[in-house]
C-alpha cells in the first residue's frame, strides 16, 4: 500500500475551504486544507469534535448544503475537477467512483424501504441493468461484507438488522460499484468494541483486495495507528500536521498532535477518545487572528497569537502548520 512517487493520486485536495454563512457570521468549518490520497492508500483523518472532518468528507462528495458552500480550492478525483460541478454532473461520481459510509448506521438506511430496494437502486443509479442483475450484484456485495444468507436478508427491512449488520449493509452499498475512493466517516464509533474491530479489519481487507483508497475519519488514534498508511491531523478547520502514520505518531511535530498522543491513556489504548488537552476547541466563527491552537498551546509565543502559521514541509516529507515545531531537528536526522 505504500505511496509510490510515479502513480497519480486518486484524490487531490488543494487549498479547500468550505464555509457556512450563518446568521451569527461565517463559520470556517474547513479552511485551506490540502492533501492527497494514492490508489489503495488509507488516509486517517483525525481531530477533535467540530474540527471539520465530516465537512471535509461532505465537501468531497459534493454534499454541502446551504448555508454552507465550498468557497475556494480544488478537489480532483483521478484528475477530474469536482469543485464547481452542478448536482447532475456530480451525481455521476457519487456512489460510483466515490462512496461514503456514515457514522450512525441506525440512521443511514431508510427505515421504510427494504434492503433490496435500497441496494438495487444504488446499482441502477449508475448501470442500466435488469432488476435481476441488480439483485444479484446486491447479494454478492452483501456476501462480501460477511452477511449470512444474503439472498434472504435482501428482503428484510433495516430494523430487522443489528447496528453492526446495518453498517455492513452501508459498507456493502459503498462497495457496489468498486469505487476508487471510500470516505468512511467514523463508521465504527457507534458500535460495540468487538464489532468495531471486526468491521475495521474487514473493511481494510476489502479495500486492499479491490485497490480502493480509503479516507478514514476518526477520533481514535489507535484505529489510525493500526489501519492508516498516512494521517492528517485536523484542528479548527485546518490540517495541523500530516505525514506517514509512524512518523506522526512516534515523533509529532505539531504541539497539537503531541497533545493528542499524550491524551491517550496508556499510550494508544484502543477505544480511547481524544479530548483531554487543556481548554476546548475554539468556536469556528470567532477564531483568534494567529494560530488557532495558540490559546491552548504550551509552546505558544507572541508571534503565534499574531500570525497564522503557513504550511511548511519537514525533511521527512511531512507537512505542518506551526511557528515553533517540535523535534524538527530530530526529524532531520
Amino acid at each position: 500500500m505504500a505511496t509510490s512517487g510515479s502513480t497519480r493520486p486518486v484524490l487531490a485536495v488543494e487549498n479547500l475551504s468550505t464555509h457556512f454563512f450563518t446568521r451569527d457570521g461565517v463559520v470556517k468549518a474547513v479552511d485551506g486544507i490540502s492533501f492527497e490520497v494514492m490508489p489503495g492508500e488509507v488516509l486517517g483523518l483525525v481531530g477533535e469534535s467540530g474540527s471539520g472532518k465530516s465537512i471535509t468528507g461532505f465537501s468531497i462528495m459534493g454534499l454541502i448544503d446551504p448555508p454552507g458552500r465550498i468557497v475556494s480550492g480544488s478537489i480532483r478525483l483521478n484528475g477530474e475537477e469536482l469543485v464547481g460541478l452542478d448536482d447532475r454532473a456530480m451525481r455521476r461520481f457519487r456512489g460510483r467512483s466515490l462512496a461514503m459510509v456514515f457514522q450512525d448506521p441506525m440512521m443511514t438506511l431508510n427505515p421504510v424501504l427494504r434492503i433490496d430496494t435500497q441496494m438495487m437502486e444504488a446499482v441502477q443509479a449508475h448501470e442500466a441493468v435488469s432488476d435481476k442483475a441488480a439483485r444479484a450484484r446486491s447479494a454478492e456485495v452483501l456476501a462480501m461484507v460477511g452477511i449470512p444468507s444474503p439472498e434472504e436478508r435482501l428482503s428484510a427491512y433495516p430494523h430487522q438488522f443489528s447496528g453492526g449488520m446495518r453498517q455492513r449493509v452501508a459498507i456493502a452499498i459503498a462497495l457496489i460499484h468498486r469505487p476508487a475512493l471510500i470516505i468512511a466517516d467514523e463508521p465504527t464509533t457507534a458500535l460495540d468494541v468487538t464489532i468495531q474491530s471486526q468491521i475495521l479489519a474487514e473493511m481494510q481487507r476489502l479495500c486492499a483486495e479491490s485497490g480502493t483508497a480509503l479516507v478514514w475519519i476518526t477520533h481514535d488514534l489507535a484505529v489510525v495507528a493500526g489501519l492508516a498508511d498516512r494521517v492528517a491531523v485536523m484542528y479548527a478547520g485546518r490540517i495541523a500536521e500530516q505525514g506517514k502514520v509512524d512518523d506522526v505518531l512516534d515523533r509529532p511535530i505539531h504541539p497539537y498532535t503531541h497533545g493528542l498522543i499524550g491524551s491517550v491513556p496508556g499510550a494508544r489504548m484502543h477505544g480511547a477518545r481524544l479530548a483531554q488537552i487543556p481548554g476546548s476547541t475554539p468556536s469556528l466563527g470567532r477564531l483568534p487572528p494567529g494560530c488557532a491552537f495558540a490559546p491552548r498551546c504550551p509552546r505558544a509565543d507572541a508571534a503565534c497569537a499574531e500570525h497564522a502559521p503557513s504550511i511548511a514541509a519537514a525533511p521527512d516529507g511531512r507537512a505542518y502548520r506551526c511557528h515553533r515545531p517540535m523535534l524538527i531537528e530530530e526529524v532531520a536526522r
Binding site: G95, M100, T108, A170
Partner: peptide, 12 residues
Amino acid sequence: DYVKFARAKGLS
C-alpha cells in the same frame, strides 16, 4: 441521514 446517504449513492 438516510436522505444524505441516498444522495451519496448518486440517486436522482
